[in-house]
Computed example of a mutant assay.
Amino acid sequence: MGNRKYILVFLLVAVAYRGNAQSVNTFDQADSVSNAQYLAGNWQQLLATGKVAIGAGFDSPALRQRLGYARLITGDYSGALKDYDVIFKNDSYNTVARYYAYLCHKYLNQELSASYNAAYLDTDQLKTEKTSSYGLINTGIESSLKVNDNTYRGTSSYTRVYLTNRLSWRWQLEQSVAYFNQYITGSTVQIPGAPLLATISSNDQQLEYYGKVSYSLTENLQLMAAYHYLNTNYQTVTYTGNMGLFGIKYSGVRFTLQGDVNMGSLISKHINQYNVSLMLYPAGNLNFYTISRGSYIDQNNTGTDVFSQIIGYKLLKNTRAETSGTFGDMNNYNDADGLYIYNAIDPTKLRLGETIFQPIGKHLQLQLNYTYEQKHDDTHSLNYNQHSITAGLLWKF
């Protein structure tokens, strides 16, 4: 009996190393072979065995648990979430699967979905992850300088500070305050009662507040609402802008789909903007991904289309980069869930950019961005180029 036991173990390990998934012919065999491969850390062979076993109808929560862990270890976080979702259909309180699902969402930068799973974790696991139903998620600052080749436009600056916190396991709040400033040389006009022509110049100054609340209906389905207030001072006149956003987001296997609408007013213009965006991450992680977004902007019954494309990729071991392009008339264009509103004096016609994300230690991340823009000065009927450099620091709690 003792010799049979050792022979059986030897055969199972041999199968594990060979990855002979075709030999899985019974439920017990699928369970024993996959477990041997799991214990040996042969993740690719385990995934091959799991595929054959599930195709043959030999599925089980234990097999899904092993497959989910194998995918997590090999960096296929989206694939692992698919396995854990199968477990949750019959056992929504499986804390082991919930913990690994929590980690997968964190690695995909899906904080609200991670929080949804954290609600199922026990006290010890929450202490290990240093998380709670209410607390800070991140805080940061970004600042940029924008230079151009238009003699009528000075260098502009933009600074934003922001904070994101968890209100509960299903509610998340993002807030930021921003300030924009640019010196503008206006048109030469005749001043009433004056013998000479005069050029009106002014600082274009803008103070902004942005708030966005998100709610997780399920692990993969979220609702969001945002409000953006703008206070603009230009040539002794103060303008106020109010924009709102309502949207829905669904995270599937290796994709995220979002639809939203921006509504409000900016400098006497009523604006409705409709957006659809699709994010694809074919490998189940952020080593390579694309984000495509189409927008239709209706301003006082005049419509324009804007399309943006982002390609993200792993540049070095811990360094990620994004190459982006936005095409179309970006006059009063709302971007990034209404966070950025392009309502400058001169509309942008083309925007190309490159961003680098570099972690510094466990909690700090440095962000550097270069953006090239083609803009049009309506007052002087000329096109010009603008270059901006943005630096940001993000602290993750």
Rank of each mutant, 00 (worst) to 15 (best):
A119C: 01
S156G: 12
S157R: 11
T155W: 04
T159M: 05
L103T: 03
S156Q: 02
L121C: 01
L121H: 02
G135D: 09
L108R: 05
Y134I: 13
N117F: 10
L196A: 15
L163I: 03
P195D: 09
T151Q: 14
S133M: 09
T155L: 03
L196T: 15
A118R: 00
L196M: 14
S168I: 05
V147E: 13
G135S: 03
F180A: 08
K106G: 03
N165Y: 10
S143P: 03
I200W: 14
F180D: 11
V189S: 13
Y158N: 10
N165Q: 14
D124V: 11
N109Q: 14
H105Q: 11
Y152V: 06
S157V: 09
A198W: 10
S132K: 08
T185F: 14
T128N: 12
S157K: 07
Y162M: 05
E174G: 12
E111C: 07
Y162Q: 07
T185Y: 15
G154V: 01
W169I: 01
Y179I: 09
D124E: 14
G186C: 06
T185L: 15
R170F: 06
S176L: 05
E111N: 13
L167E: 04
V177N: 11
V147S: 12
Y162W: 11
Y183A: 12
A178L: 09
Y152S: 10
T139F: 07
Y134Q: 12
T123C: 08
K146T: 10
E142P: 01
L112H: 00
F180Q: 08
A178K: 02
Q182I: 08
Q125W: 07
E111T: 11
L126V: 01
L126C: 05
A178H: 07
G186Y: 00
T188P: 06
S132H: 03
S143T: 06
R160C: 06
Q172I: 03
L196F: 15
T131M: 08
Y134E: 12
L112A: 05
L136S: 01
Q175V: 11
T151M: 14
T164D: 14
P192A: 08
I191M: 15
T164W: 09
R170K: 13
S168T: 11
A119H: 05
L197H: 13
L126P: 00
A178G: 09
N181G: 07
Y116M: 00
N165V: 05
I191Q: 15
G186V: 04
C104I: 01
S143M: 09
Q172H: 05
C104A: 12
F180L: 11
S187I: 13
D122E: 07
L112V: 04
I200P: 06
Q172G: 05
Y116G: 00
K146A: 13
K146S: 13
L167T: 04
S113Y: 02
A101H: 09
E129I: 00
K130I: 03
S157N: 11
I184F: 07
R153K: 11
V161M: 03
L196E: 15
L112F: 01
L136H: 04
S143E: 06
E129P: 03
K106R: 12
Q175M: 15
T199M: 13
V161E: 05
L121N: 01
A178T: 04
S144I: 02
E111H: 13
V177H: 14
Y183C: 07
N148K: 02
S168W: 09
L173N: 11
A114G: 04
Y152W: 10
S187A: 15
E129N: 08
Y102S: 02
T151H: 14
Q190E: 12
